[in-house]
Simulated scan of single mutants.
Amino acid sequence: MAKTNKGRFFEDYRVGEVIDHAVPRTVSGGERALYHMLYPARHALYSSDQFAQGCGLGAAPLDDMIAFHIIFGKTVPDISLNAVANLGYAEGRWHAPVWPGDTLRSQSEVIGVKENSNGKSGVVWVRTTGLNQREQTVLDYVRWGMVRKGDLDAAAPKTVIPDLAPALSASNLVVPQGLDFSDYDFGLAGETHRWDDYEIGERIDHVDGVTVEEAEHMMATRLWQNTAKVHFDTSARPDGSRLIYGGHVISMARALSFNGLANAQMVVGLNGGAHANPCLSGDTIRAWSEVLDKAETDAPGVGAIRLRLVATKGGAPFALKGDDGKYLPEVLLDLDYWALMPV
């Protein structure tokens, strides 16, 4: 009897199925140190207990993207081990900060399936929920990916495409309990720009670039326990290249956005996202942002700002799509998210 797991294929998914993912993980300050080693992350709220306490929190939480990567990584053996590509995200919300000592686990519900016309693969939609040791939801989001078929003769399932909101409304965002930016220290944060200083439609070139090396990508995917074959096994791709984990690009771009958005402290919503083109070892990631919306919150001194974050591997800043409406080949990531910022 085979004891190894070859992963699920497209024909193995059923709409309505709930999957409890294996191997809960207790996090510590080690994840913070490794995250700051892998990415040029400098947002003050995640770096300093003293700064976080000045903002009404008990201590510095772990970076929101650490929670995303860990919760995502738990799902890979069941959802995307045989994926061709991770295609997009929607309806993501951070419900509670993650603190050192928390234990995270993941659960996913299959909410959509659609076989591709070539009959060799299909798209699977799942809603993933990340829970802590108190069974509190830390994060939930929808993602969809293209998954290979294991049996090319398997009958196509009935197509179900979920109806997803194009964006979260500001009223649906969860502001962490106690967060208060009334006495925010702009000097320690690194920039003076506050919520009021940004205009809808404004674009920001984050200037800096970071070349992605294979070694750091391998460390990152192992850190998040992401077992997707395309990230580890070069024979899993026809050209023998190693595909850089899309979340690695997200974190790199978010960290680069510090230069110009240092006060966009907490990520609280993920409206949508697309990994427009593959990122490979040796590519140099740059980033720019566009302000899409702004909203007030009930928390003292806290405003919400909706941002488009674009990662590229070259080309002119602010170039996104060609005349044909398709992403330009140098665009790696197009991410739409909400963040919290002092007013």
Rank of each mutant, 00 (worst) to 15 (best):
A2Y: 04
G7V: 13
G7H: 13
R8E: 02
E11P: 10
D12N: 14
V15E: 08
G16A: 13
E17L: 06
I19S: 03
H21E: 09
T26A: 09
A33G: 07
Y35D: 14
P40L: 11
A41R: 08
A44C: 12
Q50D: 14
A52N: 05
M65E: 13
H69N: 15
I70R: 06
G73R: 10
K74R: 15
D78A: 12
D78W: 05
I79H: 07
S80Y: 11
S80I: 13
N82L: 06
G88W: 01
Y89C: 06
A90N: 12
E91W: 01
G92E: 09
H95G: 03
A96L: 12
A96R: 14
T103D: 04
G112H: 10
V113G: 00
K120G: 06
G122F: 00
W125S: 05
T128M: 05
G130A: 06
T137P: 04
L139C: 05
V142Q: 11
W144G: 10
R148W: 12
G150P: 10
D153N: 15
A155F: 03
A156P: 11
A165C: 04
S171A: 15
V175L: 04
P176C: 09
Q177S: 15
Q177A: 15
G178T: 14
D180E: 07
Y184E: 14
D185H: 05
L188G: 01
E191P: 03
H193T: 14
D196G: 09
D197H: 10
Y198H: 09
I200W: 08
E202I: 05
I204M: 05
V207N: 13
V207Q: 14
G209F: 09
V210W: 03
T211A: 12
A215M: 09
E216C: 06
A220N: 15
R222C: 07
T227A: 08
T227H: 02
V230E: 03
V230L: 15
H231G: 07
A236N: 07
D239N: 09
R242Y: 02
G246V: 07
G247L: 08
H248I: 04
V249K: 01
V249P: 01
S251T: 11
R254C: 06
S257V: 06
F258A: 12
N263Y: 06
N263C: 13
A264I: 06
A264Y: 01
H275I: 07
A276R: 08
A276P: 01
N277G: 00
T284F: 04
R286G: 12
S289D: 06
L292I: 03
T297V: 03
A299R: 08
G303Q: 04
I305Y: 00
R306A: 04
L307C: 01
L309W: 00
G314C: 01
A316G: 02
A319R: 10
K321W: 00
G322L: 00
Y337R: 10
Y337T: 06
M341W: 00
M341C: 07
